[in-house]
Design a protein around this nucleic acid. Structure first.
Lengths: 317, 317
DNA sequence: CTGAAAGCGCTTACAG
DNA sequence: CTGAAAGCGCTTACAG
């Protein structure tokens, strides 16, 4: 009855609710959970290595949970671990989560999703492409963001544009690379094979690949890094080599993280509204979207946006 | 009996445990929690604005929880919010947490701690000074780290050393400033009042204060920033003004965050082992320390350490 | 429409 | 030392 059963008189409901408020009664989530056979906990399962991303996503989820009695349980994991799936299985089975939110690259693992279905645990996946039915997806369309970045570079007049992609285990790495390549093709800019390199989204990999790239002759006049961390690596190498950004080298990142503003000069980057994504994902989990809620939350599609700052300019003559 | 009651025969216990393992039985934390009148959840309550700190602390806590059936519930909050205490009260009361870990500046709020005691919720506080009995404290001795930083600068020959402190609402801000001042006094370096400035631990405040500091005549030849974020702000202003680090200006930060390595040149900074701190705090919560556990976890005192990199050098002649 | 009973999966006394 | 009962605070059928 407290849970809005439709079989009570409106009047009674109001009276009871009033008293509930008066006494400040808060039902015990443990007891409720036991009776429901489902806890009042939302799990966030992730393996994204960027702290900023993790914290923003948590914030977004918590924003959506505010005012409810749900709690957020965090569960980072490593896909490379041998016990990865087993750990997750015991976590899901034990906690009887109300629902879980998956971010890349975990969100792209079908074994994970299959397991969730097996335990009838609701989930929402955040990923760069539509991998599931829209009601359990938030799609970030990374390819579109990468296209914007590449177009920007091409429009500035660059012809020797390199790319450092993320690790193949991340779908976003493929999407960003795909968008980049498509845009170059559209603009009639040829991509040299030696300019198409693979990193792993870490700062260190950005450094390593940038060293190779900038040792090439002729070297690229612009580099589109798959994320800001790797872009930071490019900055470091450029500084070491005495190359001035953007005069000698243009750099674009992806994520528009805090790092983007701390680099010198400030980094042009593709922004994804991570915190909002967390809120939207959670709203979907709560099934709020079918109701008359804030229209912004109804979205499944997130459109990345290029933020142009000072790390990009026309190529040197 | 399953919970290690001392009244069972060793033999019986072994037999039962064997069967438990065989069947893969995992007790339901909800039901256990209900019976225990206490959940199997650890809460992390924090208001630290640095994502890196938050994520590292979470990792450390999770490291200590690995293999148990406990879960980590995250609860960021804003002390400036009017409902701050009320929100926390309802969180604590409702979730019946097994225990909570408090990080600065929340860990320094006695109202918070009083409330926790009222609900008989165990806690461990991470703070820069001993505020409580050792068994519920992890003390980071920020003053010592700051002293090291200031000594390093003084030993390089700097005489015009400035400090940008954190906001007065953080105890660590006072401690770092205190250590800094003590070291200067020890070394016989005078601190000009105009060189002793207040920021708020944010990048933006670092920029604002650095602009003022570097407009002074004569300007400081070295700046000790209360954290890396503000140090990054100093870098930005120095670059804008065409000052070369460390030739024209030495900079030291605090935290040794990821940012320290992404700056150019790499930042000399005081390191705190945040992840380990999380593990130690959690071990304390579990009361493991009285038993025969890894000796490293027995510590209450964390000693910060200066990591010397490339942002510090002798002052210009 | 409403009240009292049974049950969620555990633990803690309490008899045997 | 062990087994069966009562209870944790809720919810969901089920009688009235």
């Amino acid at each position: 009855m407290i849970n809005d059963s439709p079989f009570v008189k409106e009047e009674t409901r109001l009276k009871v609710n009033a008293i509930i408020r008066e006494v400040g009664f808060e039902p015990d989530p443990q007891a409720r959970g036991l009776a429901f056979r489902r806890s009042f906990l939302i799990g966030m399962i992730y393996d994204n290595p960027t702290p900023q991303y993790v914290v923003n996503m948590q914030q977004g989820i918590l924003d959506a949970m505010r005012g409810t009695s749900y709690g957020l349980l965090v569960h980072p994991c490593e896909r490379s671990s041998l016990t990865y799936l087993a750990d997750l299985r015991s976590f899901i089975e034990r906690q009887k989560l109300f629902g879980v939110i998956l971010t890349p690259s975990i969100s792209e693992d079908e074994r994970m999703v299959k397991m969730l279905r097996e335990f009838e645990c609701p989930y929402v996946r955040v990923a760069s492409v539509m991998l599931d039915k829209p009601s359990s997806m938030v799609v970030t369309h990374d390819a579109d963001g990468a296209m914007e970045a590449a177009q920007h570079l091409a429009d500035l007049g660059h012809e020797r544009i390199a790319h450092i992609s993320g690790p193949p285990s991340f779908r976003s790495a493929h999407e960003r690379r795909r968008g980049f390549r498509e845009a170059l093709a559209q603009r009639g800019v040829k991509l040299r094979p030696s300019f198409d390199r693979e990193g792993d989204y870490t700062f260190d990999s950005g450094i390593a690949v940038a060293r190779e790239l900038l040792a090439l002759k002729p070297r690229p006049t612009a580099i589109f890094a798959g994320n800001d961390e790797m872009a930071a690596g490019v900055f470091k190498v450029a500084h070491e080599l005495g190359l001035e950004i953007p005069r000698d080298l243009s750099v674009v990142g992806f994520d528009d993280s805090a790092t983007a503003l701390r680099l010198w000069p400030v980094l042009t980057s593709v922004r994804l509204p991570v915190r909002d994504m967390g809120t939207i994902a959670t709203d979907k989990l709560f099934g709020r979207l079918s109701k008359k809620n804030s229209p912004v939350s109804e979205e499944t599609d997130i459109i990345p946006k290029l933020i142009i700052r000072e790390s990009t300019a026309a190529p040197p003559k």
